[in-house]
Amino acid sequence: REPANKATNPLNRETDWDSIQAFCDQLNNDLEGPQLATRLLAHKIQSPQEWEAMQTLVVLETCMKSCGERFHSEVGKFRFLNELIKVVSPKGELLYT
């Protein structure tokens, strides 16, 4: 979790690519990495601090490009997708159950 917190820290002045890569490496090397990563990313994407949420989207994009099938499988599950829907839905309501 440490690389994720560093990569999405709202005090960062710019994108911390080293921490993002460390986060991707960590989730690829941990058996439960994809499940833990998607929970953490879903939470941080909903941050009221816009810069933290934006950095988290960059982390998500990077993971989608470099973390492989196990991560893609977790991102495609309703649990994660419903969390993203809360961000774009007018009242944060779930569309799928």
Rank of each mutant, 00 (worst) to 15 (best):
R1M: 13
E2Q: 13
A4F: 15
N5K: 14
K6Y: 10
P10D: 03
P10V: 04
P10N: 02
E14Y: 09
T15S: 09
D16C: 04
W17G: 03
Q21C: 11
A22P: 00
A22V: 00
C24D: 10
C24V: 14
Q26G: 09
Q26S: 12
L27F: 01
L27N: 03
L27W: 01
N28C: 15
N28V: 09
N29S: 15
L31F: 07
P34A: 06
P34N: 04
P34W: 00
P34Q: 01
P34F: 01
Q35N: 11
L36K: 14
A37Q: 05
A37C: 05
T38L: 08
L40S: 08
L41M: 14
A42R: 13
H43V: 07
K44E: 15
I45S: 11
Q46I: 04
P48C: 09
Q49W: 11
E50R: 15
E50W: 11
E50L: 15
W51P: 02
E52M: 08
A53D: 06
A53V: 05
A53T: 06
M54V: 07
Q55G: 00
Q55I: 02
Q55P: 01
Q55D: 04
L57C: 12
V58E: 10
V58S: 05
V58K: 11
V59P: 02
V59T: 05
V59F: 06
E61M: 11
E61P: 00
C63A: 15
G68C: 07
E69T: 10
R70I: 03
R70D: 14
F71K: 00
E74R: 05
V75N: 04
G76N: 15
K77Y: 06
K77I: 03
F80R: 00
F80V: 00
F80P: 00
F80H: 02
L81N: 04
N82G: 05
N82D: 07
E83K: 15
E83H: 08
L84S: 02
I85L: 08
I85C: 06
K86T: 08
K86Y: 06
V87F: 07
V88E: 03
S89K: 11
G92T: 06
E93N: 10
E93L: 13
L94E: 15
Y96D: 13
Y96C: 14
Y96K: 08
Y96Q: 13
Y96H: 12
